[in-house]
Amino acid sequence: MTETAKAVILHLGLIAVLFALQFVLPAYHHGNMARVMVLATYAMGYNLLFGYTGLLSLGHAMFFAAGMYGMALTVRHLGWTPPPALLAGLLSGAVLSALVGALALRTVGVAFMIVTLMFSQAAYLTILYFTTWTRGEEGFVLQQVQRVFWGIDPSDPTTRYFLALLVFATCLMLSLWLVRSGFGKVLIAIRENEDRAQMLGYDIFAHKLGAVVISGTMSATAGAVYALLFGYAGASFAGVQYSILPLLWVLLGGAGTLIGPFIGALFTFYLIDITSGYTSAYMAVVGAVLIALTLFARQGIGGEIRARVWRGLP
């Protein structure tokens, strides 16, 4: 079997399992799983930049929030139906990421991390500043009637699960195609050795900018879909915490692997879910896991699989 066939089967298999799960999961976990799939989509977007291009952003929450508010604000204030509102969310993410990318990519390494952090913080504060429209930290709810489109009701649990799976599967297969394409291979080359990639004649800036925009738009997609499926938009999704979480998911699941973001998001979601039953200080667990991963398991779960089981894991 060729490497390509193996890769396609593995990822289609994951999608099939998630499809089947929906018939057996109890209601509570059923809802959680839909949420995990949307968050995993966000993580996949993050991973395209961090795991495949080697750029560590500390500000992806602004892209997630751009999608979320691009969708939710047009529905709430302009009375748009979900399909154009979703598009508005995607577009907001694309424009914002192009803008941020064009500026932030003039810096490298630690400065890039701080610049993205600062832009994201500015975006978060902007949401608070326009509290009249965004309702700030408190956020606002999208009513069920506002979310129905083409006879589909995203507030129905089964529909919601399918929509989440549809978005997750689409982004997963898109990512698989992307990282195996010529463009994706150049991104990997940049991650491995930027100097050498440039001296092979590749335009580093253009490729990095492309990666930021694709990554930002995928993150925005997750944000917009989150608003649609769960009917809520709030400033906390733009906060620092939501920039750190995708980093944690990707590090845990394995940076630069396609299934890593999903594994990481799933584990972290349940870890926080269980810990928050015992203490309100559940973010301590997040912190401890981040430290432990950096110290003891840089490759994450996906990296271990790649090292021990299948070197060709995309």
Partner: peptide, 18 residues
Amino acid sequence: SVFARLSCHENVALAVRR
């Protein structure tokens, strides 16, 4: 200066694809 974590084939392929 090579791409240490990529195969020799991929190293050269990056040059050919460009």
